[in-house]
């Protein structure tokens, strides 16, 4: 481990934290264009965060300390997650301490704190949101894990950088198992980030909302942190997708420090395309009923399992 690796590590985290709101802004812009609306500014999420940080926080009388700790914990876990996903380089010093299973565990921890905080105030909305979030989580989490396992079977490692390194080295070409897991991953990404077929980020209608219901009691800086964490989560998921399915352009061990010069533009292009693609998916699909969501996620989960199965079968 040398200095350049540490610099890359810090750079990666800083870029993730800084660019996450812009990625959401870009997604919203694309969506607006596709729906023939005038697009909001790319910087709107930043302004929103800034505004929220300035406001006076109102905390419900029945809230416990857990309610105030949760935003910091959720934000912190998302930042650490950004540190261990190889979005730019596969030579990251922190990565040895947590592999992909730990990454999924990290997301689970964030979810757990968020749902507990939502239940803390004791309103109907909070508990309803928490329940629905856990309903999404208990299927999405194993699905994500199975998706990662397909890739880790191929590269015989559960460490994301090693997987990316192996997949990007190219002598593998196409892998049938990955096709299945890619489909599963997209479904999981939509569900986990409260995107359209599963949840509508723009609605506050109690019949349908999941993520927003949990945040109803939050205000000011706590809300800002929660929203920022959600944007980071979307960014992280996109980067996991790149690491597993589009590993090209990432700076690898034998490419050296100059690789970063390629990696940063590559990441920007991938994010731009991914944002547009997500906007397209969200535009052409309609929000589904809440009790259809488990079916949607079960499909994702089974696709991921199938991916693993196909990989094992074709290898035999």
């Amino acid at each position: 481990m040398n200095a350049i690796d540490w610099i890359t590590q810090v750079l990666e985290v800083v870029v993730a934290v800084a660019a996450a709101p812009a990625f959401l802004g870009w997604l919203n812009q694309c969506r607006a264009w596709l729906q023939n609306r005038r697009a909001p500014s790319l910087w709107l999420p930043y302004r929103n965060l800034h505004k929220l940080f300035h406001k006076e926080a109102v905390i419900a009388a029945s809230a416990s300390p857990l309610f105030r700790i949760a935003p910091y914990v959720v934000f912190g876990t998302m930042v650490v997650a950004a540190a261990i996903i190889p979005s730019m380089s596969t030579r990251l010093p922190l990565v040895g301490s947590a592999d992909a299973i730990a990454l999924v565990g990290l997301f689970a921890a964030a979810r757990m704190f968020m749902t507990l905080a939502a239940m803390d105030v004791g309103t109907a909305f909070g508990t309803l949101g928490a329940r629905r979030e856990m309903m999404v989580g208990f299927l999405a989490e194993p699905a994500l894990l199975m998706v990662i396992f397909v890739a880790s079977q191929i590269s015989s490692s559960t460490a994301l950088p090693v997987i990316t390194d192996h997949l990007a080295s190219g002598h593998l070409g196409l892998s049938p198992g990955l096709a299945f897991s890619a489909v599963a991953f997209i479904l999981v990404l939509l569900a986990e980030n409260a995107r359209i077929p599963v949840d509508n980020p723009a609605t506050h209608l109690e019949l349908t909302m999941i993520h927003e219901a949990m945040l109803l009691e939050y205000s000011a800086r706590h809300l800002a942190l929660m929203e920022w964490a959600a944007q980071l989560k979307l960014f992280n998921y996109a980067c996991i997708g790149f690491a597993l399915f589009l590993p090209w352009g990432v700076a690898r061990a034998h490419i050296g420090p100059m690789g970063l010069a390629v990696a940063i533009p590559a990441l920007a292009i991938k994010l731009a395309v991914a944002g547009a693609a997500l906007a397209l998916i969200e535009t052409v699909s309609a929000k589904m009923r809440v009790m259809r969501i488990p079916e949607f996620l079960a499909t994702a989960f089974l696709f991921a399992v199938l991916g693993l199965l196909v990989h094992v079968l074709l290898k035999a």
């Binding site: 892998s175 049938p176 198992g177 096709a179 299945f180 199938l306 196909v310 074709l314």
Partner: peptide, 10 residues
């Protein structure tokens, strides 16, 4: 070929 086969199954 393997990919095509997997795609068919998918």
């Amino acid at each position: 070929l393997d990919s095509c086969a997997a795609l068919l199954l998918l």
